[in-house]
Amino acid sequence: MKRHRRQLFTGLPLLLVATVVTGYLHRRHAGALPGYAFLTGWVLLAAMLVLTFYNVWKKLPFLPFGRSEFWLQLHLYLGYFTVVLFLVHLNFRPPRGVFEIVLAALFTFVSASGVVGILLSRVLPRRLATRGGEVIYEKIPALRVACRTQAEALAVGPDSQSVVIGEFYLHRLADFFARPRNFWWHLAESRRPVAALLRELEDVQRTGSEAERVALAKLAELVRQKDGLDYHRSVQLSLKLWLFVHIPLTYGLLVFTALHLALVYGFSGGAR
């Protein structure tokens, strides 16, 4: 949509300009300035702190510090730019020491998880809107239990009279209804498992009596409903889970950065 493209049109040129300017400064000053690594390091640290501040900002929604949308855009483009800063700070050479390799790896993981996260955040909502029925994540367990209760009542409850359905439920459906299923299938946008289940259900249905057929049709509907819930759970959970990497590693990275700072200062200028 247009309004989002507008952000792209301001963010990308800014990023490019910043990158070019940084490249120019790097060519001019790298190697010649002894404090260069310190300066790039501090700029990098400042950028990382601003990036981390987005997490803090989110916890203070009551302060009138502008819109989160703006801050996310800043977070994104500054994030990309921080990768450039990081490479400049590294002088485009891979680190060699154990600690520095771990530090760089942490940075890479944080950046990569961020990129994955924004990709997921842009791609998955479209899918959520088209399938499964809109549902609030926290309500899914309760809805799933409701589904299961209905299905059990239908298949093995006191009112059900069909042994066939009961058998089929116990063998094929009980496990399906018991807990979230097919996380990866749903994430891969594949309906194969539920299609297989529904096919089996149809097979039973074909040979069943009129009453059985009605019950099985209802059961199929419940299967679809449960599948929709699973789908939403998978996708919504993925939209949340990437942050489980991004945020903890960010703070871990800051701890490592603190030691890096102490080491750099303690070991470089400290021989006096």
Binding site: L39, W42, L261, A262, L263, V264, Y265, G266, F267, S268, G269, G270, R272
Partner: peptide, 16 residues
């Protein structure tokens, strides 16, 4: 000791 040395470094950490 590392921290101490870092704090005593000249120019210091905050003397950007």
């Amino acid at each position: 000791g590392i921290l101490q040395a870092a704090l005593q470094a000249r120019p210091g950490m905050l003397e950007l």
